[in-house]
Structures are given as C-alpha cells and as structure tokens.
Design a protein around this nucleic acid. Sequence first.
DNA 1: ACCTGAACACCGTTCAAGT
DNA 2: ACCTGAACACCGTTCAAGT
Lengths: 216, 216
Amino acid sequence: MDGMSQRKSLTPAVIAAAALRLGDREGPAAMSMRRIAADLGCDPMALYRHFPHREGLLDAVADLALADAADPDPNAAWDLRLHDVLTAIRAAAVRHPGIAAHIAMRPPLHQHGRRLGAAMIAALAEAGLPPADVVRASQALVAYVAAALAMTVQAGQKDERWHAVSQIVSSMSGSLPGDEMPVVGSREQFEYGLRLLITGIQGEAARRTEGAEASP
Amino acid sequence: MDGMSQRKSLTPAVIAAAALRLGDREGPAAMSMRRIAADLGCDPMALYRHFPHREGLLDAVADLALADAADPDPNAAWDLRLHDVLTAIRAAAVRHPGIAAHIAMRPPLHQHGRRLGAAMIAALAEAGLPPADVVRASQALVAYVAAALAMTVQAGQKDERWHAVSQIVSSMSGSLPGDEMPVVGSREQFEYGLRLLITGIQGEAARRTEGAEASP
DNA sequence: ACCTGAACACCGTTCAAGT
DNA sequence: ACCTGAACACCGTTCAAGT
C-alpha cells in the first residue's frame, strides 16, 4: 500500500523531471536538492545516490529540456541545417522561460546536447571547413546561443537591467528609443546574430574552397 | 587611533574593490556580503547602505574589472576598432580568471561597460548599418563575448566538463582528439568566432551600401 | 535618524548513527 | 551494505532593538 504511489523507485530521469517541473513552476531557486527531494517525497540525501553533486543534476535537467529540439532535415543545405538546429535549441529552451538561462550555459554532455552538437558538426563539416575550424566554429555557435538565451530569459523575467541596457544602446545608436527597436532577447534579435555567424562561416568556407582550387 | 586604518569611510568603490580582490584570491563564492564585510571590518548590513542588493554590488565589481579595457584607436577602421574593443574586454576579464565568468554576463550598466559599448556602437554605425541593425549587431557581439568568457574561465578552472565537451567535439569532427585541436576558451578560439561575426557584419554592411547605390 | 546585530528562512554536503 | 537524518558551515535579507 505504500510502495507504489510516492516511491517512483527514484531514477535519475525521474529526479531530473521533477527538478524541471519545479523550475518551470517556481523558478531556478526552486531547483534545490531539498526542494526536489520534498517534491519527490524522499530524503534529500537519496538524490546523492544518483547525482553525486547538484551540478550533475542540473546538467541532466538541461538535457531533458533539449529533448524536444528536433534534428534538422538531413536533405537541407548545410547552412539551413545550421540555422534550424540552433533555432530548435532556442525554441526548446524558451519553452521553459523560468530556467532557460540557468540551462543554456551548461556543457552539452548528455544525450540530446550531443545529438544536437553532432548535427552542428556535420553541417559545418559539409560546409568544407577543416576539422580544427569545425571545432572553432561550433564552439562559437554554442557560445552565441547560450548567451543569447540567457539574455532572452533574463530580459523576459523580473530582470529589468537588460531592458535598461537596451534603452541605453538604442539612445546611443541615434534612433528613437523603444520605438521600433529590436527587443533584447527577441527571436528576431537572435536570428540576426545567428545570420551574422552563418554569413561569416559561409565566407570562411568560400575562402577555403577558393584556396583549394587556386593552390594545386 | 581607531578611526583611520580599518574604517575607509565605506564608499561603493571601496566595497567593489574589496569584493574584486576577494574574488580574485578565493573565487566567486568568496564574494558574499558576509565575507566582504568581514574583509572590510564592518557589519554585513553596512554594505546594504551602498548597495540595496547583492546583484548591484556584483554589477559594480564587473564594471571595475572593465576599467582597464582601453578604448580602441579612433583613427583605425571600424572593423579593426570592433576587433580591438572586444579583444580588450576579453583581456580585461581574463586578468581576473577566478571570477570573469561571473562578471561576463552582467549588463553593462555602469561607466566602463557603457564606454566600451559606445565604442562598439560607434564602430557599427560607421560600418553603415541602420540604427536597428546597430542595436542587433551590438547585442550579438555582447552575447558572444560574454559566453566565450564564461567558457574560457570555466575551462581554465576546476570545471573539467568543458574539456570533456571539447574531446567529444574533436572526436566527432574527425580528427585526432587533443592533438592540435583548438582549446576551448583559448584566445585563438575567441578570435575565430569574433572574426566570423565581423565578417558577417562586413557582409551585411556591403549588402546595405549596394542596395543604397542600386535603388536610387 | 542612523546603525547594529540577532534572527529568519534557507542552502549543499558530510558523517555518524541506525537498520 | 545500505539508507537516513541530524549536524556543519554557510547564505541574502529582514527587522526589532539599541544609540
């Protein structure tokens, strides 16, 4: 009578799901070991049997959130695939507005982070970059998406400070502030920066293939 | 005899300097209200007279760290100025390896953050981007530098996880892992992504001026 | 009116005591 | 051998009590 309803046998997946749910409902501060344990109806120390440190648990939460970022269409061109996978990552994170900022910068160590990373790598390799540049470019893309997401969420939340920055920047750039200015963290803003990076990669790839044609 | 040595009259600047020093010596966790107060020899609550919340104090620490990022040479071309100001921001942050990650993502609300932001804005405006795109591009650049710094520092510190990611990426990209692969968070890695962004901006600017020449 | 410090409501993690 | 929960060493911030 007491071994079925509350005791879900406590797997890492069950713990991560509970943490994600708590984070969605009550923000990042709710994802504490004690709160998660209380939500699961177990002792806080029971979690340490599955995650030696809290950081590892948060990595698992991040990966869970990335689960519904789909792989890009394998028949599309490499630059479109790159665009699509990064847009999918942003969309998946934005579905959890309360905690995406705390998720975005975690290293993609687990299943879905690796899957999406592999899609990026494959697209960059197809672009014609040499392996070392594939690594460099992928790290730049990961850095960009992580920080853009952090801004997205912090601006969308209680944090007024990024809005203040937006005002400052708008006034400096010489147009009417707040008028038709891009909103910090908006999808449009995200896509602009992503386009800059992809354009840069296209240029790099073109330089490479030109060089390869010219030198031999 | 007791009013001169310890009691530095407690200004925001004195508090931020103490916090930065503590962070450099003992890492981000040492920048707690209690530790800073102990270091200054005052009651923790005395800090709240100058900073209503800890977040504001950390913003001030970040700005202090940016103080020795110099403005770019005003006679240089816009793209070189852009490169130089972002490189200077990275160099300033890297001088505080223990805490740069916690500094990098703070909104540039204060003196030096605004000064460096203004230099970026001016360079982008000179590139020929319309005001809305100046805002978009500057936010993309800020996002990139922030995340790249966070990775730089986390990889340089105790955090082995980013190195693990680097291994995964290297092995996926099809070359020998750890051999001559770019190191995550290295200056070279940073400059590669920055070059991608600047190339993208150059392309955007060229598209703009071409359009302006063609349409009238 | 200003300042102090005790107190509140939390943390992550260790470790000795139980089963 | 495994699991529990008390305990340790902290947090940011509030607020009543002192001057």
